[in-house]
Design a protein around this nucleic acid. Structure first.
Lengths: 330, 330
DNA sequence: CTGAAAGCGCTTACAG
DNA sequence: CTGAAAGCGCTTACAG
């Protein structure tokens, strides 16, 4: 059917061993022979059969990427960073998503056996750790991304807690006191860390103040709902801190629709710094997380066998939406 | 190192052939033996070595996905649709992006040999067709997505031309006459089709009217720039039709920043119906393209060997941004 | 229903 | 520098 190493060997009048050496750039091949082999391979449009190669070489040149989902702003950016490093190193990416289902995650992880040289796994669902550890073979190097701590595995996390503290500090410095928080899914590692940052910062700055937390699930629609809810409150907040930008945008649109001025009447802040954050009106103040960089670092950590440089912390991006509150402006 | 079929065979006191049959669900295995084998495999946490399996069975259970990029709203949605069908069929996805580089595309396509059972390729760059056709082996079934026509290969395209006609009809019916168009990259298949739709509709409805086209590149920043440019025009347009939503949003933000009312002073429309389109204020009128569905259809077409149901045409989503112009309101 | 054996297309010591 | 041969871990006719 398709052309194999044997065909090349026959045409070039050498053994398959020599063809293999020539193609793989080994030193021990006469220059003239190498050229001939490469010429024939090219003419025959030969391309090595991957499964055969990886079966005998024990290497796949492929990295497995197991994520909760393959789409959405976050995963998409993560893939971009991973993809870039993979290309630099000539690696392929075998992707798999498990949609938050622990069993599927286990299956996905196990199915990677013999298909990849290493694994990049993101498992932000707090409840899934048992399955995770169990399905991660010690034989396959793995790096966990944004999945909290994990014994025996390298990890790389966004500092969501520290980021939330920074944002709260910014809002408090702006004079805001009644700060509501739109939380992410409560089984999500980052969502929890951001909520913890909000609570701790509040407790530290204004001891005794009751946290004001609305439940969201990281998408615009839930931010939109939370925004509406806040507008109906007996006493409105000075500021709203959403656990991610998508919810902040949903909230912003709810405020816009209601004719509530941001930041004039209510200040608003998000987390992530998605591209749209700077284009909405007013520009959204947020914590910049370099997600693509996180993905790239994770892959490099996997390949280079080190722990990976710790990911740099999120950076505060001050835009108009958090502008000084009326009180602070006095 | 890791456990192989031999280990299972030894433990279960059968031959590797029997283990193979039991594991693959073949009929010709005694029930009692099957159970024993499955039990042992489970206990040993055996998982078949993929490369070995696909080398001998000639099947990889993997579909190659070659896209211009792996990130961004469009690809992300496409992956979602592909991923969903892949999961239903128990298939893995080997992804590769080529960043608009024809040579890289060729390399990516060739590197898929022996790794996948079929290929899903998106190649919207008009100039790359030669490379594409050349790197597509006849041995490997392939479906081209949004890549225009291709001899000898199945294709699935969004009807961008028809969609642009529909949107223009909507704007014209709203009474708009001076309609500017923000075009996408000129080497992009969809961008060209949408531009062609704009021109044809204009010529048909208002023969002799000069098209008003601004160059964009499908991202918010270029839409933002185009919006600014339109505001500086001696005579502003009645309506702006952007070749995709991201540019329409960039344009909307430019208008918002300048205090120009949409649709009061200028109507605005986009194309794609990305999730944000309904959340911005005013809601963005656009053509809905079900991208995830497109991806799913493409994979089904590949697997089921048929041409695939033709993708349903884009649907007009009327929201506030295209509201009747002052003239039409009279 | 089961096993021995060939074979998938490569890579890699081992000799020379 | 080169080749013959073993081996990677499976699947699948072929016998029985």
């Amino acid at each position: 059917m398709s052309v194999t190493i044997k065909d090349v060997a026959r045409e070039a009048n050498v053994s398959v061993a020599t063809v293999s050496r020539a193609l793989n750039g080994h030193e021990n091949v006469a220059e003239e022979v190498r050229k001939r082999v490469l010429g024939v391979a090219d003419r025959l449009r030969y391309s090595p059969h991957h499964a055969a190669r990886s079966l005998s070489s024990r290497r796949t040149q492929t990295i497995g990427v197991v994520l909760p989902d393959l789409y959405g702003e976050f995963f998409s950016e993560l893939m971009r960073g991973i993809d870039q490093v993979a290309r630099e190193r000539g690696l392929h990416l075998l992707v798999s998503s498990y949609h938050g289902n622990p069993e599927e995650q286990g299956a996905a992880l196990r199915a990677m056996r013999g298909r990849v040289d290493g694994l990049l796994v993101m498992s932000p669902f707090v409840g899934e750790r048992g399955f995770l550890e169990q399905s991660l073979s010690a034989a396959l190097p793995a790096v966990l991304i944004n999945s909290g701590a994990a014994e025996g595995h390298r990890t790389l996390n966004v500092d969501s807690y520290g980021g939330a503290l920074s944002m709260m500090q910014h809002l408090l410095q702006g004079g805001h006191r009644r700060i509501a928080f739109i939380a992410g899914p409560d089984d999500n590692h980052d969502a929890r860390e951001r909520l913890r940052g909000y609570r701790d910062a509040l407790e530290r700055a204004l001891p005794g103040t009751a946290p004001w937390v609305l439940q969201g699930d990281f998408d615009e629609a839930s931010g939109h709902r939370a925004g509406g809810e806040l507008l109906r409150a007996a006493q409105r907040p000075d500021a709203v801190f959403a656990a991610n930008d998508m919810m902040a945008l949903g909230c912003l649109f709810a405020f816009n629709q209601a004719g509530v001025a941001v930041p004039g009447q209510i200040a608003l802040a998000g987390f992530d710094d998605i591209p749209l954050a700077r284009y909405v009106h007013p520009g959204l103040t947020t914590m910049r997380v370099d997600i693509a960089d996180l993905g790239g670092r994770a892959l490099r950590a996997l390949l280079d066998g080190n722990g990976g440089d710790p990911a740099p912390g999120p950076r505060l991006m001050v835009r108009e939406s958090s502008g000084a509150s009326p009180e602070a402006a006095r």
